[in-house]
Nucleic acid binder design. Structure first.
Lengths: 211, 211
DNA sequence: CGGAATGTCAAGCCACTGTTTGAATTCCGT
DNA sequence: ACGGAATTCAAACAGTGGCTTGACATTCCG
């Protein structure tokens, strides 16, 4: 199929819009939403300061757009990963699927990693009114419980969700803290060999062998 | 023992110095070092803006002082907790000792929690030149390896340290993310019952039963 | 008492923030 | 080619940031 019309004005507008959004994403990933400056974004995107007001209305709305985009990419990725698992998957397989988006981002770096870092920051300072993604959050959580429950028959759902959130928190920590950067320097196989047992162990838990 | 002299000027100076430092600590814990303003600190401490320059030289140096103080309190606490363990302690006992400073802070709230949140933020954005605490970092890490190794004979030291850092990262995440606040609403026993198995599981790891 | 040391305070300085404005530019439709 | 919509731009705006200044207050010491 061909494009109907080559309206160069609108194309250019879309390009600066995208440029601003990715520049904002990268800076949010680096320094958090509060540590980001209008002129830093526009400099990086090669745009004028007024472009932000023109295209997004305000700096805050630009950041919201960038964050929501990142969050949605992350959730879609995670849901796809979990849904691809058979209900009889082993705990190790579940942990691999659970950690894969983050491991991929660590290996890939660049924009994928920026998405993960942004998601992790949002996990610390959750903004208000993200109703639009509530459904995907639910699906992600239910997807994890679905494949986790058969492996951990003795653990009730509430605690399953707690462990899921702990594991997600650990992965988010890796996205932000220096240990994640150190990990990223290794090969994908080494990352998986070190990280997956920890995630799987957190899922399984370790209760003292009852007397 | 008695104070030599009651130099009221220096006492008052020390009081504002402390007030500024704890105000800075609480605000850093809430919003991070970058999200903190001079006037917010001085308002909270009931001091004048010039007091910061006078007593600390600059806002940055005040924050550094507050952070270093928090970090030292945290490390001392953790080292004491780990050193109190026998070399034959079970993995569960190790996990309890490892997580106890954070669990205590979550239950206590207030300044103890502010210390933990600040430490967690420092874990994400580590400042430069903290040579003075390097020794305590080392002691903390060696203390963990000492009690972990007998429980996990098949795991080499490098991976032991990795798992220790993962567990610490998970605890730091709890200090910052909403899940920590939810956890803090529970009783100390409930917190321990949910959290310790996850930490212990992360220590133990979960490798696929391999042939 | 008088000078020095110590601390507090209100005011102001300058850099930088997000946002707005009005003109200039580019490009489509006619 | 012309009108007009879409987009870009330099300049300016008000607000706030950290920091300094110079005057004032209090206390110590000779």
């Amino acid at each position: 199929m061909r494009v109907e019309k080559a309206d160069l004005r609108r194309e250019a507008g879309q390009r600066t819009r995208d440029g601003l959004q990715t520049a904002a994403l990268e800076l949010i990933a680096q320094r958090g939403q509060e540590g980001v400056t209008l002129r830093e974004i526009t400099d990086r995107a090669g745009a004028n300061v007024a472009a932000v007001s023109y295209h997004f209305g305000s700096l805050k709305k630009l950041c919201d757009a960038a964050i929501e985009h990142a969050l949605e990419r992350y959730l879609d990725d995670k849901i796809r990963e979990l849904d691809s698992l058979s209900p009889t998957a082993t705990l190790h397989e579940v942990a691999v699927a659970f950690a894969r988006p983050m491991m991929r981002a660590l290996s890939a770096g660049g924009q994928d990693l920026a998405v993960m870092r942004t998601v992790a920051r949002v996990g610390i300072d959750p903004p208000q009114g993200w109703d639009r993604l509530d459904d995907k959050f639910d699906r992600s959580r239910r997807g994890a419980v679905r494949v986790l429950a058969p492996n951990l028959p003795g653990v009730d759902e509430e605690e399953l969700i707690f462990r899921t959130r702990c594991a997600a928190g650990l992965l988010n920590w890796l996205a932000l803290a220096p240990i994640g950067t150190e990990l990223a320097a290794l090969s994908a196989e080494q990352i998986e060999r070190q990280l997956v047992p920890v995630v799987a162990g957190a899922f399984r838990g370790d209760t003292p062998t009852g007397h």
